[in-house]
């Protein structure tokens, strides 16, 4: 699959500036991450990352075009240069990082595969699930993780597999299986569509690690740095308490770290070294808010999904989101 990688041009930033927009690969529809709003515009967690990258480069979050990619299409689309960055809930794995010729660095969402069961079954742990009928979507890593987990723990199970997500949801809701398994973020969106959400519980076991993050082609370090630092800037802004609303005010902050971050320090080179303007972090936060705001608006407390921050909380609050110092 390495054919396309060498065709990829080195200076993505120059290409992007020349054409005037970022071509961003997103999901073909995943609740909270990339979904159409009432007017049909893309919105969601991953979509906000596309906007943030555009804001960092152009100071304008609208200079982005979206390519919806299916699970099968996404890697060829990035390899062939059809998209500049893939912000499509893609799990960072060694195979994708090396053999497929991509680069991953920041993890913008720590996901993991979990189980949902009916309360009536009185199950407290996934280890009690021997003999259960498990609803799962076919052709995904979810199905493989499920098989691995049950085999490793010497448990029996009957997989009830479906091709489409709606089918799996409907089958579980209708009681055709006892257990539903998918990534935790997916379990939250499933809860919205169940007849009686309170009859179901999510088991504590997480059986796989799914670090999701934006991916770029190997061989273009400047572009890789920009995508990486956009994420760290979003997290850093949350650490500093800089929000979409107060970013202009914070420029006057006496804190030298904040001043440096926002590029107001005298002879700042905070953006020029990246090939951007010194205002880039200001533009990013102005366009989409900080990491916490993006999270809340799309998938967290401010959205119907109401996903807990959990592992995605700041490191200061017991999570794993840790910004590399901006200095």
């Amino acid at each position: 699959m390495g054919i396309g990688a060498n065709a990829a041009s080195a200076a993505t930033l120059d290409d992007v500036k020349a054409k005037g927009f970022v071509q961003c690969g997103v999901n073909t529809g995943l609740a909270g991450f990339a979904a159409p709003d009432a007017a049909g515009n893309w919105s969601g967690f991953d979509v906000d990352y596309c906007k943030a990258i555009a804001a960092a480069i152009f100071g304008d979050a609208t200079k982005v075009k979206y390519t919806p990619t299916s699970a099968k299409e996404r890697f060829p689309a990035l390899q062939s240069g059809e998209v500049d960055v893939l912000a499509r809930n893609t799990t960072w794995t060694i195979n994708r990082d090396t053999a497929l010729g991509f680069n991953f660095r920041p993890v913008n969402y720590y996901d993991g595969q979990g189980f949902m069961v009916r309360k009536g079954l009185d199950v407290k742990s996934a280890l009690e699930l021997s003999g259960a009928a498990v609803c799962v979507q076919t052709g995904t890593t979810t199905e493989l993780n499920l098989a691995d987990y049950f085999k490793a723990n010497n448990l029996q199970y009957n997989p009830v597999v479906f091709e489409k997500l709606e089918e799996v949801n409907a089958a579980y809701d209708a009681g055709r299986c006892d257990v539903y398994t998918t990534d935790q973020s997916g379990l939250y969106s499933l809860r919205l569509t169940l007849s009686n959400p309170d009859d179901h519980i999510i088991l504590p076991e997480i059986i796989s690690k799914e670090p999701l993050g934006p991916a770029v082609r190997q061989g273009d370090d400047q572009w890789f740095d920009i995508v990486t630092w956009v994420h760290y800037a979003l997290v850093q802004a949350e650490e500093f308490g800089i929000t979409q609303a107060n970013v202009e005010e914070m420029k006057k902050s006496a804190n030298p770290d904040v001043q440096r971050f926002l590029g107001v320090e005298a002879d700042s080179k905070i953006g020029t070294d990246l090939g951007l303007t010194n205002e880039w972090a200001v533009n990013v936060v102005k366009a989409v808010g900080n990491y916490g705001e993006i999270f809340d608006r799309n998938i967290g407390a401010g959205s119907p999904l109401k996903i807990e921050r959990g592992l995605n909380a700041l490191w200061t609050k017991g999570g794993l989101q840790y910004a590399i110092p901006v200095r």
């Binding site: 529809g29 159409p36 009432a38 969106s189």
Partner: peptide, 19 residues
Amino acid sequence: GIVRLNFTDTNWASAVTPL
């Protein structure tokens, strides 16, 4: 495709929307 895409809009997620 567009009908199925709109199932992912969380503002309309419910048990009866897909059907």
